[in-house]
């Protein structure tokens, strides 16, 4: 079982948490200007990196607050957690060799078509 450090409550077991998918996916600045493809990409297209990934979690059984975490999708290791609204911390990938070479999306760029950060 993973031990996840909640920014408010400290380390708790994974069973108390709820996963919320990729973090920093910003709502489109002008949703009406999006075509169907752009809207679908905002709604459904997510990064799938092997390595560090910024994702949302909720401490469902504790303080019930949402927060963001940097987790390595290969080793499951949590590098850091931070409150919603705070910028993504600049943490070096602890296992840079794990990421495969080839055409992969950089994990720290939002996949939404029109910028802004959440």
């Amino acid at each position: 079982m993973l031990s996840i450090p909640c920014p408010e409550c400290g380390p708790r077991d994974e069973i108390e948490f709820h996963y919320g998918g990729q973090a920093h996916v910003a709502y489109p600045a002008d949703p009406h200007s999006l075509d169907d493809r752009g809207w679908a990409e905002y709604l459904f297209y997510r990064d799938n990196p092997k390595g560090l990934f910024a994702e949302r979690w909720q401490h469902a059984a504790g303080c019930r607050k949402w927060f963001n975490a940097l987790r390595d999708t290969h080793t499951y290791e949590f590098s850091t957690t931070y409150r919603v609204g705070e910028p993504r911390p600049d943490v070096a990938d602890p296992h840079p060799g794990a990421a495969p070479a080839g055409p992969s999306t950089p994990s720290n760029t939002p996949s939404s078509p029109a910028g802004g950060t959440l």
Partner: peptide
């Protein structure tokens, strides 16, 4: 005092 789970119960 903490909010947690006891068995499956919050």
């Amino acid at each position: 005092a903490i909010a947690t789970q006891l068995g499956p119960v919050p």
